[in-house]
């Protein structure tokens, strides 16, 4: 931002018309902007039929989840918001280690049912609900694997290091769609034939295998940023290798890699849209099945813009929060 200007005209002069080529740019941009605004506005108010969005609103969020059971999802929302709020407000973070597993278990119980609640099969977990579930379960499961892979890559044992390096580089060289294909098609082949995995479980397995490799690289970046002196000091205090890792190196490494990990979660959240290519009915998938109905034929733009906005709100919020965290920690 330039220095504060007193009058609007002075501001305009300084920021838009300070040189002849800037004036030209301003005019070109303004023309482009008004052309786009006119086109979009004309389309949104005159041509678009938003009925496809308004009449299917519950479908986008919870899909075919039984309507009389939706209160359970509201409860889940309350739990999630409550946990995040206590995590932010409470200074003592220690009790979160107990609170979070309890919350996760109760959330899964509330969504899936069983144990006094009506069971809701995974084929009825659709829409945004499935998107959020797949993304959060995958990141939670991928996290420990990622840490182990990162530690393995930094290890002094050549065989372990080689194996972890090969895994990480192999996965990072493949497109996610290929990994998901592998998870859907190969996973049933490499597991004993008695084990029948659910479609959703296979998709989550694919996301976990994929994201573990990327998380490993993020954590490795954090590990490399820890000065040697920290390990030496831990050794001088008499800690052995595993304790110095657990108490000294990892906590610092994870703290420095938080922004990268949040970034990874954002891209994971966007990547869940690929599950729609494997017949899963998450947010993008349910959109495609709505668009396949004859009465909504050709209403692509309206629906894609709407769910694009949903994705955008989540990703943008997360990236802003992570930026704030980054600034705070520096």
């Amino acid at each position: 931002m330039n220095a504060k200007s007193k009058t609007p005209i002075a501001w305009l002069q300084r920021n838009l018309f300070n040189t002849w080529y800037n004036s030209l740019w301003t005019i070109v941009c303004f023309a482009l902007l008004s052309w786009i605004a006119y086109g979009v506005g004309n389309w949104a108010f005159n041509k678009a039929q938003w009925e496809v969005v308004t009449s299917n609103l519950p479908l986008f969020f919870v899909g075919r989840y039984p309507a009389d059971q939706v209160w359970r999802l509201w409860l889940v929302l309350v739990i999630v918001v409550g946990t995040i709020a206590t995590g932010i407000l409470n200074r003592k973070r220690r009790f979160l280690f107990i609170l979070i597993p309890v919350c996760v278990l109760s959330i899964l119980w509330l969504i899936g049912g069983g144990f006094f609640l009506t069971t809701v099969g995974t084929n009825l977990w659709n829409g945004l609900l499935l998107t959020l579930l797949a993304a959060s379960i995958s990141i939670v499961l991928a996290f420990p694997i990622g840490i182990l892979l990162a530690l393995g890559r930094q290890s002094s044992l050549p065989i372990l290091r080689g194996f972890c390096t090969i895994y990480v580089e192999l996965v990072r060289g493949l497109p996610l769609i290929g990994i998901l294909f592998m998870a859907q098609v190969m996973l049933p082949l490499v597991l004993p034939s008695q084990i029948q995995l659910d479609r959703v479980v296979r998709a989550i397995a694919g996301l976990v295998l994929f994201n573990a490799a990327y998380l490993a690289e993020n954590v490795r970046g954090g590990l490399q940023s820890i000065p040697r002196g920290q390990v030496e000091a831990a050794k001088a205090l008499g800690l052995n290798t595993s304790l110095s890792l657990l108490l000294i190196v990892l906590p610092q490494a994870l703290r420095t890699s938080i922004p990268a990990i949040v970034g990874q979660f954002i891209s994971l959240f966007k990547d869940t849209s690929l599950l729609s290519l494997f017949a899963l009915v998450e947010l993008t998938g349910i959109t495609r099945s709505i668009l396949a109905q004859p009465e909504y034929l050709g209403r692509y733009a309206e629906v894609y813009l709407f769910i694009g906005l949903i994705y955008w709100v989540f990703c943008y919020t997360m990236s802003q929060v992570s930026r704030k965290l980054e600034r705070k920690s520096i």
Partner: peptide
């Protein structure tokens, strides 16, 4: 950059 690529391709 905050919307999935797949969705943009569909669009």
């Amino acid at each position: 950059r905050n919307a999935p690529l797949l969705l943009q391709l569909f669009f």
